[in-house]
Design a protein around this nucleic acid. Structure first.
Lengths: 216, 216
DNA sequence: AATCTTTTGAAATGGCCATTTGAAGTGTAT
DNA sequence: ATACACTTCAAATGGCCATTTCAAAAGATT
């Protein structure tokens, strides 16, 4: 009946603050007080708009996952008919460009790493839903490149390897594991990383293809 | 003057419990009460033997890092005179075998991932000390394989890629990112992963070498 | 303007947890 | 045996934080 707009506004301010605070501190170390202070809202607003901290966290994930697959599609914008090599480049480009997102999505990468390292258990469903199409797509590309002789395990290992290479681009370059500040990475840097990973991986996958052929 | 042995014993029981509890829950979510209960000791014992929770965490890292470089040397047991390819295999083998350690060290890999995702700031010094020789060694191997035309950035990217591939072997295969249970991986599985990563990476590095040559 | 509903605010509640405290217990040395 | 330092213990302390509560404020509807 009575739809007030100010309510939705603070809801979104809180969601935005929650994104950055959760990403900075993790689910456990982020406090509701801090999120609300950043949003210029009262603590009770979290209860009112989201029920509790966990549900707020879930909302952050749902929002971010949806936004991410909108801005960085799983195919990287490369058409399905393209060669597998070009499609691989599209996928890696998407993965790496996400890391450099300066807007609402750069933080989400950190959130994902944290969740991988110490699962809260709150967002399993979301992850499965948004990750499965991505993995399936990447596996399909790799399977084409490997040829018919490849086993599922071969595909899986290559897929893991590609993702692993992309993951460390930014996250592993932090204290205490590095003294570099990855926040300084430019768009050019990300392009170079993408090109590197694609070149490296294409050669790697071909080597596995050859090995598989000789194995039989 | 008066050195009692029972003191050292509970100290070590607490240290052992701390290893597993910290690895299971992370620094923040692990509680002193739980650690002590597992160790069969009183809460105050942490204060007495380690000063506080942070120092206990530090002690866990110092212990684990020392143990790790003892059991899994940075060169993987391959002599310095061996070909870079063989030395690479030694390094990757060390990295991957660590993941499968069933003893006191399997947990430490989780701890490292957590610290990478959400640094506590407590153990920076330890990480730098134990990681630098490892990275230097790996970079040296890769530089040899890349040839003299390679820039530092090329070496760095390859090095990151190799480490990234190793990292995801176990950690990324967990809920919610996978439904596999990596605890079931056998020694054979780890060998296959090692062989895969080595083959993949040698081909990748060669491709980068060729590209670098043509670039000039 | 009067009324209803949505939204906000400040303070209170209750739980969890690291750390402290001071006394009691225990091995070691004289 | 006695004294002494080392070690353990149970209970208290104090801080932090999510969540609740209930009254006040304010948009919407008539």
């Amino acid at each position: 009946m009575k739809a007030r707009k100010d309510g939705k506004e603070t809801r979104e301010r809180i969601l935005a603050s929650a994104c950055s605070v959760f990403a900075e501190k993790g689910f456990r170390d982020a406090t509701v007080v801090e999120i609300c202070k950043l949003a210029g809202a009262n603590v009770a607003a979290v209860n009112y708009h989201f029920r509790d901290k966990s549900s707020l966290y879930l909302a952050v994930w749902q929002h971010s996952a949806a936004e991410e697959s909108r801005l960085y599609p799983v195919d990287g914008g490369v058409p399905r008919e393209a060669t597998p090599e070009r499609r691989l480049a599209g996928i890696v480009g998407s993965l790496v460009r996400r890391l450099g997102d300066q807007g609402t999505l750069g933080y989400f990468q950190k959130l994902k790493i944290m969740e991988m390292a110490m699962p809260t258990g709150i967002i399993w469903e979301v992850v499965r839903e948004y990750r499965e199409p991505f993995r399936d797509n990447l596996k399909r590309v790799i399977r084409e490149m490997l040829g018919s002789g490849a086993a599922d395990a071969d595909v899986e290992r290559c897929e893991r390897g590609v993702v692993g290479q992309c993951m460390v681009v930014k996250e592993a370059l932090r204290e205490p594991f590095s003294t570099r500040t990855p926040d300084r990475m430019s768009a050019r840097d990300f392009e170079e990383w993408t090109a590197h990973i694609v070149r490296f991986s294409i050669a790697g996958i071909r080597a596995i293809r050859n090995h598989v052929k000789n194995r039989r």
